[in-house]
Design a protein around this nucleic acid. Structure first.
Lengths: 159, 159
DNA sequence: GGCATATAGGATAAAAAGGTCTTACAATCT
DNA sequence: AGATTGTAAGACCTTTTTATCCTATATGCC
């Protein structure tokens, strides 16, 4: 790792999702949990609970509302909430798609623009399998499942 | 996708590796192929062949040299080359590690710093499986294998 | 030796992602 | 009515990532 600092300053952990998408997933899980308790959660509480910057979280919540993942309630005692049926229906894939789009499923592992089965990059097939597994996992994982783990105290959203 | 442009300007395809790492993999495969033909390849040729910016590629090649993945030869007729034994030995994981470090195996899918088996984030287990598969794949894939596909004309490094 | 051609390495610049602030406004509660 | 909360959009700032440039140094060849 140390040598890398010649190339990059590098503190970032390069992973699957954009930062905004990570916040979106965490926020959705939290709102789902609160919604199960029939509670509307306001922006500040969400940001605090998922450890995300307030202003940035506001943009992300707007995006989640637009994509019909959560809904918003104006006025005092307002905030964000999820329909109870939606908690079961919405899966991780939907949330990711709302923020990052579907690039994660489509993109080439080596960054080539015109990489597909007919003109594959050297790692095309090997990556395709990993990506398919990822996609399947994201589609099979419901927000309900994740919120439940959080409620039971088995999982955590911060730090 | 269109709605996203409110949040991000977004042309980027957010994936597994940094840009530098993608170039590194492509470059290593190309150098390996040339080395099998006992040819030393200079920077300019590499950059041209893998479609990467010359100056940036120079930095990446330095990194690959430091990590003993390729070696460099100075002076006219110089460039980069791989020991023939190394072509078999080196796997994708080594190349990735040389540029991006091992963050891809360690990092939390939701970006939490203190996420592990004892204090997992809601998607910890599901991500762990995908990441383990990715790691295994990267470790099992040799540069030799990838260079061979390229030589045979089955795979491509550009566009 | 002298020259051409390479890589090495530091400094710097450009672009993208991440994040903040401000302004105007709409809804809803007390 | 007034306070509180979200909506929407734009301008702006900061950090990280990506990329370039310049000078030093090594090597092969004449």
């Amino acid at each position: 790792m140390s040598d890398l600092r010649i190339l990059y300053t590098f503190t970032k952990i390069y992973l699957m999702f954009s930062k905004g998408c990570e916040y979106a997933i965490r926020a959705t899980i939290y709102v789902a949990l609160q919604s199960q308790r029939n509670q509307c959660t306001n922006l500040k509480a969400i940001a605090e609970e998922v450890g995300s910057p307030v202003a940035f979280t506001a943009k992300i919540m707007q995006q989640l509302v637009k994509n019909n993942i959560v809904y918003s309630v104006m006025g005092p005692t307002g905030g964000f909430q999820m329909d109870k049926e939606r908690i079961d229906q919405v899966n991780l894939s939907e949330v990711v798609n709302a923020i990052d789009g579907d690039a994660i499923y489509r993109g080439c592992g080596l960054g080539l623009e015109a990489c597909d089965a007919s003109q594959p990059c050297p790692v095309h097939d090997k990556f395709a399998k990993i990506r398919d597994d990822l996609q399947k996992m994201l589609e099979e994982t419901s927000i309900y499942e994740l919120a439940t783990g959080l409620e039971v105290g088995m999982t955590f959203l911060k730090r």
